[in-house]
Every structure is written in structure tokens, then in C-alpha cells.
Amino acid sequence: MNFTRYPRRAYLEEATPIEFMENLSTFLGMEVNLFVKRDDLLPGAGGGNKTRKLEFCLADALEQGADTIITCGAVQSNHCRLTASWCCKENLDCHLILEERVKGTYHPENNGNNFLFHLLDVNSISVVPGGSDMMAEMRKKGDELKSHGKKPYIVPGGASNPIGALGYVACAEEIMNQLNAGHQDIDHIVVPSGSAGTHAGMVAGMIGTNANIPVSGINVSRPKDVQEGIVYNLAEETAQKLEMKMSIPREAVVCYDQYVGPGYSLPTDSMVEAVRLFAKHEAILLDPVYSGKAAAGLLDLVRSGHFPRGSNVLFLHTGGSPALYAYMPTFRKDN
């Protein structure tokens, strides 16, 4: 696949490591061999998967002459944090529209990513109720900025469009280069599935590289059928953008929604257990919203015998650990 046709910034210094989680695999009885792709170690203020997407999205913005970025996310959005951090590096203004998906959860003095938005000196933060039309809100902000002579560029939530998803097609190719160089087999990949760009890019990338390693998404918000439709459509659009010769089979998109719990960003017992187990056994920090719930799904799939005994399973760690500090009472209440 040829990525040189698209503008791209060089935010990645090298491939993120793939590590064998020997302690966690042993704790789980060695039913499967668990590996982790450490995209939590990507550069940016606090690390995380959105840096891969922003390599393409911010390059597109700069090529179009933008001087201002507008994006959106939840009140503890990892995407908003990383967008703000790369805007600092690129000397771009940054305006955030935050969706209060759970009423009463936004407070200006909050810890976690919310604190980092201010430390990164974003130009403005607007908070809108859950269920708002976020694209309409960002366009409204864009019109306001244009009236003041600015040249805004809108990055969708999660940088999850065909431009941003290119970052995870490139990641799929990076993974295959690492596996081939290390003579390492992987039978299955598990990823968080939220705004869909990471999941869709990985599906398109695994098909585009002819690796055809199955990719399963663990939902963090939507029901299975809805999320699978969103991921499939974005994977198809991304494949078309890359002019891939093959289309995306519908059966290549698989999601599990039983680990969402009461709703997006709301803690679950299985998420708390997963965060603690990854920390205790592997010294790896997960976040409560995305990687924590995805890891909870991974652990349950292992324990339930979903993967054949002896399988090699790769977990894509999308980062987000700064959000942990906004959830301290959740992890201290049992102590």
C-alpha cells in the first residue's frame, strides 16, 4: 500500500514495541499467549493511538493552509488531549467542543485529560449536552472563527474518517513487518472499538497486507449491530481511498458489546479488574474508558475459551492512562 500519495507528518519516531505478557498469560493459566502492541508509548502529551491518525489529519490541515484546528470528544477525551498536544508542536490554534455524555460529569477543575487541556493552553473549550450534533457544533465554531479572520480545519471526533484511519492501516503494516522480522505468529488481534477509526483501519490494513489476521473490537459505547455497521462503512471508505483491489468482507468486522456496562465512560467491575491486573502483572497502565474495557473483554474471551488453547493473541493498547487520574475514587473504594 502506498501512503506517500497523502500528506503526512512525521510524529512517529519508530515502531511501538510488541511485548509478550508472560506474567498475565501465566496468571490466566497459559490458555493463550497474550501479546500487547504498545501504542500507549506513542509520542504526544501522555501518548495514545490518536497520534497515528493525526499524522495524516493535521498534515491535510496544513496543506490546506489552516491555522486553527477544531475537534470534539467526551469530557475526558484522549483524542482532544493529543490533538491539543500536536497543535502545540505545529503552532496551530486549538478549539475543543466537549460533549457531556454523562450529565454532570464536566467540571472545569477536573483532573485527568481535562486538566491537561488547560495545561496545553487550548484556545477555547465549549461544553455541549450529550447527544448534540457535534459536527454542527464544530461548524458553528468554524464560522465564528472565520469571521475573525482565522482559517479553521475540522478534525472529526477520534480523527475517525478515511484520512485518520490511514494511520491504522499503516499500523497494520507496521505490525506485520515486526511479526515477519521476529518470526512471530499472531492468530488474533483485539482492539478497542469506539469512534471506529482504529478498528476500521486495522481491518482494512490486515486485508490490504494479505495478512488476514482476524480483528475483534470491544465496544466502549454502542450496541454490536450499530458499531459493526459504522466500522464496516469506514473500513470500506478507507480501502477505497487507498484504492485497494479487494473490498472489505462484512464478516471481517466483529464487535462485542457486553463489556460496555451501564454506558460510555461509566466504570464496570470487569474494567477495574482488568486495569488492576495489567498494572500488577505487567506494569502497564490502562485507561478506564477505552483500553480498560477492551482489556476486560480480552480477559473474558480468554477465560471463556473463545480462543483455541495455545493461540497467540495481540491486544492493541490504545493508551489513555492520563484519564486514570480522573477516576481515582473508582480504584480506591475497595481499599
Rank of each mutant, 00 (worst) to 15 (best):
A196L: 09
L316F: 14
S321F: 08
A200K: 12
P156S: 04
P288V: 00
F56A: 10
A323K: 04
I70A: 08
Q258N: 13
R9Q: 13
V191Y: 01
S311N: 06
A279K: 00
K333I: 06
V127E: 09
I69C: 06
V302M: 11
A196R: 04
L116I: 13
V75R: 07
R101Q: 06
K140C: 06
L266C: 07
K241V: 14
Q64L: 13
D334H: 14
F56L: 14
N123K: 11
D257A: 10
D121S: 11
R332I: 01
L98K: 09
P43Y: 12
N91K: 15
S304M: 13
V169D: 05
T268S: 04
A200S: 11
P156H: 06
S124L: 15
P329I: 05
R139S: 12
L24V: 07
F35E: 05
D40I: 02
L316T: 00
Q178C: 10
E55F: 11
P17D: 11
G44A: 03
T238G: 10
I213F: 06
R101G: 00
H95R: 08
G182Y: 12
H95I: 02
F56G: 09
P162L: 09
T4C: 13
T209P: 07
Y325V: 03
A66L: 08
S193E: 04
R5S: 12
M21Q: 03
A296G: 01
E144Y: 15
L286S: 01
N177L: 14
F278V: 01
E99V: 06
I125Q: 10
K53G: 03
L316P: 04
L179K: 12
E109T: 05
M134L: 14
Y11S: 07
I213Q: 03
K245W: 13
F27M: 03
A200T: 03
A323G: 03
G208M: 02
D67W: 09
D287S: 05
M246T: 08
E63W: 09
H183T: 07
V127I: 05
I218F: 10
Q184C: 08
E13I: 13
N113S: 01
V272W: 10
G157K: 08
I97T: 08
Y256H: 10
F278W: 11
L298T: 01
G73K: 04
E236W: 04
N111I: 03
M135N: 11
M1F: 12
M176T: 08
M246E: 10
L62D: 07
E31W: 15
V75Q: 02
L324C: 11
D269N: 02
E251T: 01
P156A: 05
H95Y: 14
V203M: 15
N111H: 11
I218G: 01
R8K: 15
L34R: 02
A294L: 00
V155I: 15
K140T: 06
L314S: 02
P267C: 08
L92E: 04
L234H: 06
F3W: 10
L96S: 06
Y106N: 02
P249Q: 03
A45F: 13
I213L: 03
P17C: 12
H281D: 00
P192V: 00
Y290T: 00
V289W: 02
S124V: 13
P288A: 02
L145Q: 09
P262D: 09
D300T: 03
Y106L: 14
K293H: 05
D143C: 11
H188G: 01
F331S: 00
H79S: 01
M30F: 14
G164K: 06
R5K: 15
P152S: 10
